[in-house]
Design a protein around this nucleic acid. Structure first.
Lengths: 154, 154
DNA sequence: GCATGATTTCAGTATTGCCTGAATGTACTG
DNA sequence: CAGTACATTCAGGCAATACTGAAATCATGC
């Protein structure tokens, strides 16, 4: 189903938001459209047509979404075409995966041990403490988040 | 004080890390060097010399750091040259400012109310719930973080 | 004020990364 | 097995951005 005006405006808003943080326009538009399109499952051809993007762009950016875990492929039995949709719980999954980045930050801080400055070494150690703090806090936070989620949809 | 090999390696590591997330190379190198340079306060000319960057680049990217709140200017009386340093508690400040982005995400979700899809509307509402959850959890988390910080350096 | 050196601005250049469109590859249907 | 529709790959164009170097501006100590 092609976009109406309100939908187009929303896709644009989502796209504008995410491009502010450096993502590609097409990537962000696909995300915005996958949030509100009907049905939720779309083929690459439909996405290309509705968003006026080339098939190549859709293929590339969609793969990026899949690799990030935001989007998944759905196989429909007896239908030759692959469909893609926003992964259920995608937003939560993104938050959960933050833990990895936190750990990477901790690594980065520890790698600075050999070059710790005499003058205000906390410029480096603070970062390590911060990463440790979040590494400890994140798992229980994620559990509370999941509990919240269950409450909404049992 | 110019860089030795170990320092150079660390600056490179920090720069590589942050460029992975889309920041400019020069921006990231300045950050890495400001984490470990001695003294912690540096002039633009020193940064340009040590990092082999042009004066223009240093000026531009340093401004970006200042605007983001990572770096601050220090005025030294009787010295005409401005100095720059990593802001004390810069890492914590960045985390605290996450709250704004969380709120913006909530806005984005609410803006989707008018185009909520019949089919799996949770694609949008989930994002709103997530933002609400974090908006609630973030302030107390930040308080615990600050408490942790105080413990380290009273 | 004036001189000096630091900082900013800006035009030009290089680089990067997105996007397209066509060619190629793949999988299902009849 | 042929035909069809979908998906992927990739070379090339294009736009955006980073960086440089030089000129202009600004601030401070004298």
């Amino acid at each position: 189903m092609p976009m109406d005006d309100a939908q187009h405006e929303y896709v644009d808003r989502v796209a504008t938001f995410f491009t502010m943080f450096g993502s590609a326009r097409a990537w962000a538009e696909i995300l915005g459209w996958l949030m509100i399109c009907e049905p939720a499952e779309q083929t690459q051809a439909q996405l290309a047509e509705d968003l006026r993007l080339s098939a190549g762009t859709v293929s590339t950016q969609l793969r990026a979404h899949v690799q990030l875990g935001m989007v998944e492929q759905v196989r429909v039995r007896g239908d030759r075409t692959q469909r893609y949709r926003l992964r259920p719980g995608a937003w939560y999954a993104v938050m959960a995966s933050e833990l990895e980045r936190i750990r990477a930050l901790g690594e980065l801080a520890r790698a600075g041990d050999g070059v710790l400055p005499r003058d205000r070494p906390e410029r480096v150690t603070e970062l390590g403490d911060l990463a440790d703090f979040f590494a400890r806090e994140w798992p229980p936070l994620m559990e509370r988040m999941t509990a919240e989620l269950e409450k909404g949809r049992p």
